[in-house]
């Protein structure tokens, strides 16, 4: 469904994304993990057209979308959410979601009705008439997902929808994301909450300093020395292994 080839982005002297290749099949949930500053959000921004890549190519459903405008990529069916939530403050939850629904529906009443449906799917139906600015963090994260979902995407890119949530809120969100997958939407998520990555995703890529350093099943990755070193520092994999041997 999504083919990324040798994608590169430089900010001045810093190579934020460095020759990334990844191939995402249709269906299922995949995860993109890696330590802070690894380039995950930049990679999302490159794929969805918010940044222009310095090299490489992005193909979505066989079509080259490299460097296309974000709204065109969204209309093609690849929609992202933002890590730092971006509600239309001053508008109600219903109106916020309806903007997404308007991508395919020109009629206002239909878009508002669709917004209600989507709100139900993500568990926001009790807050439809609230000002989006008055939602809690958990509520705003759901709103991000709802607005994107209302566009009927084929591929949904979720950027840290669980960051800042407490464990019980995370437990509530996980089935929502599963239900979206079950409705036929392919999902790629960036997540730091490992519990969620383990529970949700079938496949994961690990990004460190702009490069992909590993991919595979999430459980296998957790034992990968390269991944451990990326998170915990040089030499840590060896020390952990030694520690395990001593015990």
């Amino acid at each position: 469904m999504l083919e990324v080839t040798a994608l590169t982005k430089r900010f001045g002297g810093l190579v934020a994304v460095d020759g990334v290749n990844l191939s995402l099949p249709a269906g299922g949930i995949s995860a993109l993990i890696g330590p802070n500053g690894a380039g995950k959000t930049t990679l999302f921004a490159l794929i969805t057209g918010f940044h222009r890549p310095d090299g490489g190519c992005v193909r979505f459903q066989g079509r080259d979308v490299t460097g296309e405008k974000p709204f065109r990529i969204a209309r093609a069916g690849m929609v992202r959410t933002f890590q730092i939530v971006q509600p239309f403050a001053g508008q109600t939850v219903r109106e916020n979601i309806a903007v997404g629904a308007h991508m395919h529906l020109s009629d206002r009443a239909e878009a508002l009705a669709r917004a209600e449906e989507v709100a139900r799917a993500v568990g926001l139906s009790d807050r439809l008439d609230r000002d989006a600015a008055d939602l809690t963090v958990a509520g705003r994260k759901r709103l991000e997902v709802a607005r994107a979902l209302a566009t009927d995407p084929k591929l949904l890119l979720l950027d840290e929808v669980m960051a800042g949530l407490n464990p019980s809120e995370i437990r509530d969100v996980i089935p929502v994301i599963r239900a979206i997958r079950d409705s036929g939407v392919t999902i790629l998520l960036i997540e730091h909450v490992m519990q969620a990555v383990m529970e949700l995703s079938d496949h994961a890529w690990v990004l460190n300093q702009g490069r992909l350093i590993a991919e595979g099943a999430p459980r296998a990755l957790a034992a990968d020395p390269a991944v451990i070193e990326a998170y915990l520092g040089h030499g840590m994999a060896e020390r952990l292994a030694k520690g395990a041997a001593h015990a």
Partner: peptide, 22 residues
Amino acid sequence: RLGAQMLAVRDNEDAAAAVGVD
């Protein structure tokens, strides 16, 4: 729809673009 999209652009242009608003 145009009015809803105008408000969306006013309140947050990036978020509007992310859901397909030109």
